[in-house]
Design a protein around this nucleic acid. Structure first.
Length: 354
RNA sequence: UGGGGCGUCGUCAAGUGGUAAGACACAAGACUUUGACUCUUGCAUUCGCAGGUUCGAAUCCUGCCGCCCCAG
């Protein structure tokens, strides 16, 4: 039987390098694929991946996905902010670019599977369905960012690091004498490269667009520099001196106004969502489980009542802080991703029990 | 113009003779494969200005400047 051909999505970082090595040791025919994206310092990245590929002695292909990335991720990023919502470019990139176009390229080049260095697991159920599971290391779990992957995508992907902790991966990297363990990985949006959103927008020719900051009573108490520089729950950048801090309550894109409030007002139990997608074919309605509202948010007990046109209302048992339109809600059943949706708003005030 | 009050960090605000609290804002760092939140640290050699009293003043005295209130 021929060796399984696996394409590794390589960034040159520790995780993807260890992933490649692990598969190599398992006897796979490993090929490295580097996504060329429109990000600052890409030349350095290319250098770094090259040295890793040489070190591991695997072939490396550089795939230019800049145009696609511009259209699918950056355009989405800008458009969402201009609409007064807060995008999650990583989730969209994973869905459209990394596990989309890149996966297709690998398939067309004869790869049986694609592997990445994400900390998450993919399981095949008795029904033949694939399901995403959290990684073993709860601190590093990245299943949230992979929530929008389809069955077809999950079927063609393997995530070796899901069974390891970050600690163990560092150990493996050290054993492999990977020089990249020293280079600190960037955790911010890759195409921002440390820049602020405001600076990025300015670079795109979108300058400041000042407007009023009002409190929930409608009184003007400050001025903002452009709605895209803020997000729900944000405290920094408001410049409103007071006895206690102010937080962004809502972005009113239609009137170019920023509504702010005090901390207590930020908590809400009901969330409205669109584009609901379930992993399994049939789901109880209402569904009950835990829902994660953003990266690094502890999934919290809630019910999801599906409505028409892919909409659904999430009702948490306890109020959640800063429900943010544009962000993704991921539904967890224990460690498994049961579904996800895009947040469009919160229902404040009296909660009606279902 | 009389009478009274007040002027302390960007904002609010302690401190009435013993050598400038705190909060908010702001900045830096940490955390983090989204934006945020959070945490840590920093942030007035100086108290409207100028003199004086005193071992020592933001705190007492004098003058000036500025603001507010009341009265005409």
């Amino acid at each position: 039987m021929a060796k399984q051909k696996v394409g590794i999505a390589m960034s040159g970082g520790v995780d993807s390098s260890v992933t490649a090595s692990l598969l190599q040791q398992k006897g796979c025919d490993v090929h490295g694929f580097f996504m060329l994206l429109p990000v600052p310092g890409k030349e350095r990245h290319v250098q770094r991946v090259r040295s890793v590929a040489e070190h591991l002695e695997i072939p490396l292909y550089c795939i230019d996905l800049q145009d696609l990335f511009n259209r699918k991720v950056i355009d989405y990023f800008i458009r969402t902010y201009l609409d007064g919502d807060t995008p999650n470019p990583c989730i969209v990139c994973n869905r459209q670019v990394k596990f989309g176009a890149l996966l297709n390229v690998m398939r067309s080049r004869g790869m049986d599977k694609m592997a990445t260095g994400h900390y998450a697991r993919i399981r095949k159920k008795d029904t033949g369905e694939y399901i995403l599971q959290k990684g073993c290391d709860p601190k590093k779990d990245q299943s949230y960012f992979l929530c929008r992957l389809t069955q077809a995508q999950l079927e063609n992907v393997i995530l070796p690091l899901g069974d390891y902790t970050k600690e163990e991966v560092y150990g493996l990297a050290a054993a492999l004498k990977l020089s990249t363990i020293h280079g600190p990985e960037s955790q911010d949006v890759c195409f921002l490269a440390g820049e602020s959103v405001a600076a990025f927008f300015a670079g795109q020719g979108i300058g400041d667009r000042p407007g009023d900051i009002i409190n929930t009573e409608g009184r003007v108490i400050g001025e903002h520099r452009g709605l895209w520089q803020y997000t729900v729950g944000q405290r920094k950048g408001l410049s409103i001196p007071d006895a206690t801090p102010w937080y962004v309550y809502r972005l009113d894109a239609g009137n170019n106004r920023l509504v702010v409030c005090k901390k207590d007002r930020l908590f809400c139990r009901k969330v409205i969502t669109r584009d609901v997608r379930w992993t399994g074919a049939a789901q109880p309605n209402p569904w009950r489980g835990r829902v994660q509202i953003r990266g690094r948010h502890l999934p919290s007990p809630a019910t999801v009542a599906a409505g028409n046109n892919g909409e659904a209302v999430i009702t948490f048992e306890a109020g959640q802080r800063a429900i943010t339109p544009g962000q993704f809600a991921v539904f967890y059943e224990d460690d498994f991703v049961a579904g996800s949706a895009v947040i469009t708003g919160a229902i404040a005030g009296e909660d009606i029990d279902l």
